[in-house]
Design a protein around this nucleic acid. Structure first.
Lengths: 276, 276
DNA sequence: TTTAAGGTTCCATTATTTGGAACTAGGTTT
DNA sequence: AAACCTAGTTCCAAATAATGGAACCTTAAA
């Protein structure tokens, strides 16, 4: 699938285990794997050694390893919009009192990187890291709409176009038409296209050069809210998105000036600080 | 460092980028890398192709890629205690009104997988995924204390023994003595050993066979609380830890009965659902 | 005790990785 | 403007690691 030599293949195996969503036995993996028994076995060994997988000897099952949680922490901090956007999300959700989502595009899908739920407590990882379809969510369409021509076509061709509800735009043509509307309008709607009873308004987060950095949305249920209400909040959304974009650009720029002075007095110097 | 063929080396590179904590240029990586230029270059290409790294062409910098966030979501859900422990944490933090941490051991270090902060809103990934030292935190010591002999020795030898405060137990001998106390007492203290002004009580989460699954702690500042107060909460901690362990065992057991019926009607069937 | 299925190891073959050196693109000094 | 860096990229023969068919365990049932 990915190619990319041994590392790519190993990642495919990792993805496969992750896709099961629960501990899985060797045989189950083998059945669905393009690799012969011995090869798959060795990959699982390697990944387990690397603690990218965890092996439960009692049940003889593999599951995705916690080392990933650690790496993800770094990823979330250093290459997602989340740390930059945090204060803005706090302010926005406090002001409007509805659920706010921050998302980015990953491999043609919507990756939620942060969330504010005004009423209930936040659901941690269960939301950050969650993925959703791009063609039938507010944030997804807001991001797609402002993608450069070529990239947009590529991503549109990747979508699954599953019909979640009877509002879902389940083919590239109607989606493309909708995206044009979004560009002129400046924001996207989700009209119960993904889940019945759930509507949303979303805007893209774009750099000064117009590059799509992410998306921001307000979500509500049809019981509590409607599009008139949501429309009233669009200015707030826009302002927040712009503020996030501005901060993102301010953060990125000065980075390359100082040459890597690997702070050795840090709390947990990668491996260096640990005896081996 | 890790060995394990090509995949291991690639992971080392990934770790190296993660350790920088910010976007990093090729040259900076090369300086600190055991690999020759061409080799490092190819690894970075491969990892970038795999979206495990993200490359910013403008600044020519690499950072950890968001694909990891996605994988971590799976890891957190399927092989951490967090999803099982969630309701218990909610109940505990609600009842006692102090900060509660849920942690697991990863590679001799404390990996925080969830947190409840009774007063302030939860800080998402900034806490889940965070790592800390095992030898000078409450959860760390609680878990170390109940490790099997051999594993304990191995992990003790891995610690960095940095003296964070003048309370830090900064050598294996005094740590080992303390661990013995923890075993008889049944719970661990952090007496400002990691951060001045921060104290905590922690218990291990152990399976019915005594295996250490994780750790649970209550943290407070010396201004608001003291060990007398914390001691009063230990029974609650214990009960919660036991409940989590019980649920964890109940969840694991029936897993291997049903043979992999890869749900194809799932929302996002890994790649299968997407045209390629 | 035999059979079977699931898992693990072996090892000659095959394919990938390796890294020194040569090359290219920007930017800076002479 | 030419020479000269420095940082990043490509090439390719040699070295190394991955491959997978088959044999071998090990546990659970017949």
């Amino acid at each position: 699938m990915s190619g990319d030599g041994t590392v790519g293949k190993a990642m495919d195996v990792l993805d496969q285990v992750a896709a099961f969503g629960r501990p899985v036995r060797f045989g189950a993996l083998l059945e669905a794997s393009p690799f012969p028994k011995a090869t798959l076995y060795r990959f699982l060994q390697t990944l387990t050694n690397q603690r990218l997988l965890a092996y439960d000897p009692e049940h003889q099952t593999y599951s995705v390893g916690v080392r990933l949680v650690r790496l993800a922490h770094a990823a979330w901090n250093q290459s997602s919009l989340a740390p930059i956007a945090r204060p803005h999300l706090d302010a926005l959700s406090h002001k409007i009192g509805l659920t706010v989502h921050l998302a980015q595009l990953d491999h043609g899908q919507v990756l939620y990187v942060d969330k504010r739920n005004a009423t209930q407590p936040i659901e941690m990882f269960s939301d950050a890291g969650k993925i959703g379809p791009a063609y039938c969510t507010g944030v997804g369409k807001a991001m797609l709409a402002f993608l450069p021509e070529e990239e947009q076509s590529r991503v549109l061709a990747q979508q699954s176009y599953h019909r979640f509800t009877d509002q879902t735009l389940a083919d590239p043509a109607s989606l493309k038409a909708e995206l044009a509307n979004i560009v002129t309008r400046g924001h996207a709607y989700d009209r119960e296209e993904h889940e019945p009873g759930i509507i949303c308004t979303a805007v893209p987060i774009r750099s000064s050069k117009g590059q799509v950095l992410g998306g921001l949305s307000i979500t509500g249920s049809t019981r509590d809210t409607d599009f008139t209400k949501l429309d009233g909040l669009v200015p707030d959304l826009r302002i927040t998105a712009q503020a996030i974009a501005a901060d993102a650009e301010a953060w990125r720029s000065p980075v390359h000036l100082s040459q890597a002075t690997n702070d050795t007095d840090k709390v947990q110097p990668k491996y260096g600080g640990m005896k081996q």
